[in-house]
Each structure stands twice: as C-alpha cells, then as structure tokens.
Design a protein around this nucleic acid. Sequence first.
DNA 1: CATGAACCCTGTAGCCGCTTCAGGGTCAAG
DNA 2: CTTGACCCTGAAGCGGCTACAGGGTTCATG
Lengths: 145, 145
Amino acid sequence: MMTGTFSIGELARATGTKVETIRYYERIGLLPPPARTGGNYRAYAQLHLDRLSFIRRGRDLGFSLDDVRELLRLSDDRQRPCGEIDQIARGHLAEVERKLADLAMLRGELRQLIDQCQRGTIAECRIIEALAPRAEGKIFGSPTP
Amino acid sequence: MMTGTFSIGELARATGTKVETIRYYERIGLLPPPARTGGNYRAYAQLHLDRLSFIRRGRDLGFSLDDVRELLRLSDDRQRPCGEIDQIARGHLAEVERKLADLAMLRGELRQLIDQCQRGTIAECRIIEALAPRAEGKIFGSPTP
DNA sequence: CATGAACCCTGTAGCCGCTTCAGGGTCAAG
DNA sequence: CTTGACCCTGAAGCGGCTACAGGGTTCATG
C-alpha cells in the first residue's frame, strides 16, 4: 500500500466497520470512491477516514443513512446556520422517544403475560389465551335468538 | 361470496390487516390457503379468521413471524406443557428490554447534543462537532519528535 | 344489455441497511 | 513456489411487508 494511504481492511479496523459495509457505502454514494493501487486495491486517504468516522458516529446515534447523508452535506458548508442540523436531530429524537414509549408498553404487556403463566399445559396457558381469538372475533356466530 | 365464508377484503377489515399482507402470509405458509370461489376468489372460513387474529396479536406484541409460527405450532397441541411458550415469551421480553436500554442511552446522547446547539453557524455547531472526527482519529499524523 | 366502480387475481420489484456467497485476483512470508 | 491473508466484482438474501402492472369478476345502475 502506498505511503499515506491505507487499505479497506485498515480503514475497517480503524473505524470498526465491516469491509463489505464500506464497499456498500461507496456503492450508494455515501463514501467517495478512493484511488486504486496497481493491483486494483482501494487506497484510502485521510479524507475517507474522516468521512467514514462521521458516518459511523451518526449511525451509532441511530440516524438513518439518508439523515447521515444530509448531515454530511450540511456540515460541508461551515458558514451555514445550523438550524437544519438541529431540525434533523430533533426529528430523530422525537422518533426515538416514540419508539421508547411503544417498547415500554410492549414490555408491560409481555411481563403481565409471563407473570400469569402457571407452567401448566397449553390448554390453560395464559399466554396462548391472550393471543387466541375470543368468541367475539367471529363474523358468523350462532344467531342470537 | 358463499355463505359461511368471506373474502380477503372482509378478512382484512375484520383483523385490521392489509390485503397484501394476508396474501403474503399465505405465500410464506403462515396462513393456510383457503378454498376458492368459481371466480377464483379466496373464500376464508372461521379457521382463517382465528389464525390471522392470533398472528396479528402476536405481531402487535412484537413477536417475529418465526416466533408466531412457533407459537401457533405449539398452541395446536393443547396437552403440551407450556414451558416452551414461556421460553419464547421470556426471550422476546429480554430482547425488548435490551432495545429499551439502548434507546434510552440514545435519547440521552441526542438530548445532550441538541441542548448544546447554540443556533450559530455550522462551524460552531456542537452536533456536527460531536460527529466530526477528532485529530486522534488520524492514522497518519505528523510524527511526534 | 352495457357500463363503471369496487373488488379480486398473479407475479414481480422495491424498501432499509446491510450480509453472504461464488468465483476469482494480489501480495508478502517462508 | 506455495500458502494464507487479503482484496476484487456482481448477485442474491434477510425481515416484513408494500407497491406496482396488467389483468379478471361481481354487482348496481342506466
């Protein structure tokens, strides 16, 4: 590998990203294509390490690849006011909070289900009972006389 | 539609599932193929309504389709002890709790980021700063003399 | 009887964010 | 000169749907 550049494997180790993921980011235009060596190996420069580190941090914070793409684009213009950045982050936070609420509900329901299970047969299992349809679910019940 | 049976649209409305999703469940073998009318329309019976309701409830509780498949299989043998059911539910609960913890961490980090944003330019933006790589990230720095 | 709207059919491709695989090529050490 | 670690491309697969395209059926209305 040329001096001042590094291979995809080295970039992978330096950023904690899988090699295939790096190639994937290049394919979708998130990471610019690097120079190539004589043997057609990718030769990355500092620019790529910076950019991939940025992407990884964004992903670790749960931003979508599209969000990351936008954050990268915005961060390139250092004079721009950072309201748009703020908006993306706030939007993401709102989504995270929604997911948290949903999961907390779920946890409650699951705990209840599991607490009620008496370890008998399935015929008496509360978990199955909770999942199985009740009679009201019927569309064609016996006619109420 | 024959008496005692109902169309895919009716089944969809009765269970709050999209028509395409019902066909998808049939394709992957989660819902048994129903009888067909002369015009090749699916004609569902009570069995299908019960089974699809079960699936929906399972999905609403966040079980994977594979979990649901297993729960359905187990629930068919009413004499079986319900330990396996319990295991699936506990496994899922553990996963939900893991996700909750992860999201709570994330929320904390995002809130910190957003709180620090002073609405200046991107050059001073704390959000970008948090994402952007620090000098330590460099693989090829100037040699320390 | 014709027409139109609402429903249904099949099959295929797309979404996200990777991961895996097949089938090779390159490079340094021993 | 061979071994093994690394690299390359292109295509397909994952979960859990969703969205077409391009038709057929059914039923009420005129």
